[in-house]
Amino acid sequence: MKLSGSAIVLGNNINTGVVVPAKYMSRQGDPKSLIPHMFESIDPGLYTRLPGSILVAGSNFGVGSTREIVPVLLREAGVQAVMARSFSRGFYRNATNLGLPLAEAVVEGTVDGDLMEINFDTGVVINLTRNIEARAVPFPEIMQRILAEGGLIPFFKKFRSLT
């Protein structure tokens, strides 16, 4: 699988409550209504750039709450994949379980709007605008199997077990 998109560059330690604040969780049954609130505390207009994007974050993306609505909303908003120097463990699990592709990789010098491409079969990440290549840290085998089935629930429906 190969995905490409326009880079949205984010900093370190992006809390899941910054992706979508907990204060709107009454409305989680209608995820689309939450999209305009995504990233509002750091950039109120950022959500308009999410469709077709690849988020390019620093370390520890997704620290904070372990709400599945966060990867759900990133997908709903049209984010292709999230690339980060590292992920917080709760988000890392949830994103995989919800079928949101992640790449633990760093492409130095990437700025907003650069065209990024991630090849999930080879683990190669490329900034096509600047022609810089990097390699993503491979996922544990169980996560690769969950991703291959499109997420934890399809995986469990097929195997009825975690092994």
Binding site: T66, R67, E68, G90, R93, N94, N97, L98, G151, L152, I153, F156, L162
Partner: peptide
């Protein structure tokens, strides 16, 4: 430790 809604269901 914390886990997401789906992992808790399983």
């Amino acid at each position: 430790t914390s886990m997401g809604a789906g992992e808790a269901a399983i």
